[in-house]
Computed example of a mutant assay.
Amino acid sequence: MTGPAPKSERVPVGVDPTRASIARVYDAFLGGKDNYEIDREVFRGVQKAAPEAQDLALENRGFLIRACRFFALQTGITQYLDLGSGLPTAENTHQVVQRALPDARVVYVDNDPVVLAHGRALLEENDNTHFVAEDIFKPQDILGNETVRKHIDFNEPLVLLQLGTLHHYEGPAENPAKIMREYIDALPSGSFVAISHFLDPENEHSSVARKMEEMFRHSPMGSGTFRTLPEIEELFDGLELIRPGVVRCADWWPDGPQIKPLNQVQHCIAGGIGRKP
């Protein structure tokens, strides 16, 4: 049984330090400080399946940064809806896009109490950054949210981000594609969608993907599904994929030539961007 958080770990109101949180587990994977022992237990468990497990989070973060840079520099879109934003770390969505487009508006959505506390701090420092407490797997709640509607104009193209989120949906297997269909149907023409997702590469690295999946799903966090490339591509239904399509995150417009061979974990997370015609 997990005991109470050590006295040195301050626990915000509404946070249960005896239950793992997706946002805090990712923070632990990234080497952050906004996590508790229960979250680090998940990290250590996945490391037993793959010592390089931290690269799931690092590759996801790298994809986010490159995707946001692409949106800001190549599309000029100035409104961003970031679903399941997680805890702030180096180079968040608003930091990347507002560097190129200072007037860009970013609405973050999450329902983790620790994330909410950080979200309120963001509101105080950035007039173009806003935060909404909603369940990202309930599209109609988010699409009808007053704050979302106030700061996102659904008559103009926008960017929708689902990065490292849909593999944590626990429900009927076909539902992630249905969830994305609801979001995509609501987007105006010319909008873009970015998705990253745990990948079963269906090759010699599949065994480590399934071992990590087993550790995630039977850990205190309880979620983490590794889908195949065709299953991830289904999430983009109705969109035109931007070159190079849905690929390993490490292969999506890297910042330079890949000199080092990819490790087994880097083969197990994929990402892509689609445009709504």
Score class of each variant (00 low, 15 high):
110 D>A: 09
6 P>W: 12
94 H>K: 12
247 V>L: 09
128 N>S: 02
172 P>L: 05
90 A>M: 11
49 A>I: 00
23 A>G: 03
94 H>A: 06
250 A>N: 05
258 Q>C: 09
178 K>L: 15
202 E>A: 07
187 L>F: 09
17 P>I: 04
175 N>M: 12
172 P>S: 05
37 E>D: 14
51 P>V: 04
198 F>M: 07
18 T>S: 06
209 A>P: 05
127 D>Y: 14
89 T>K: 12
130 H>N: 04
17 P>A: 09
178 K>D: 14
44 R>F: 06
7 K>P: 06
92 N>M: 14
131 F>W: 14
132 V>T: 02
87 L>Q: 08
51 P>E: 13
177 A>H: 09
60 N>T: 01
117 A>H: 01
137 F>W: 10
9 E>G: 09
30 L>Q: 10
158 L>G: 03
124 E>V: 04
265 V>M: 06
13 V>K: 12
148 V>M: 10
94 H>F: 11
91 E>S: 15
106 V>K: 01
15 V>Y: 00
197 H>S: 01
207 S>L: 13
195 I>E: 05
139 P>G: 06
190 G>M: 13
90 A>L: 13
200 D>K: 03
86 G>V: 00
133 A>N: 08
233 E>M: 13
127 D>H: 14
158 L>E: 01
104 A>R: 03
221 M>I: 15
25 V>L: 06
235 L>C: 12
199 L>Y: 04
85 S>A: 15
78 T>E: 13
6 P>T: 11
22 I>F: 06
228 T>W: 03
251 D>L: 14
248 R>I: 07
147 T>S: 11
99 R>V: 07
74 Q>T: 00
170 E>F: 09
204 E>H: 06
121 A>C: 08
51 P>W: 10
162 Q>Y: 12
130 H>L: 09
39 D>F: 10
165 T>C: 07
135 D>T: 11
198 F>D: 01
11 V>G: 10
155 N>Q: 14
241 L>M: 12
264 Q>H: 14
167 H>A: 00
142 I>R: 02
191 S>F: 08
165 T>K: 02
162 Q>K: 04
74 Q>C: 06
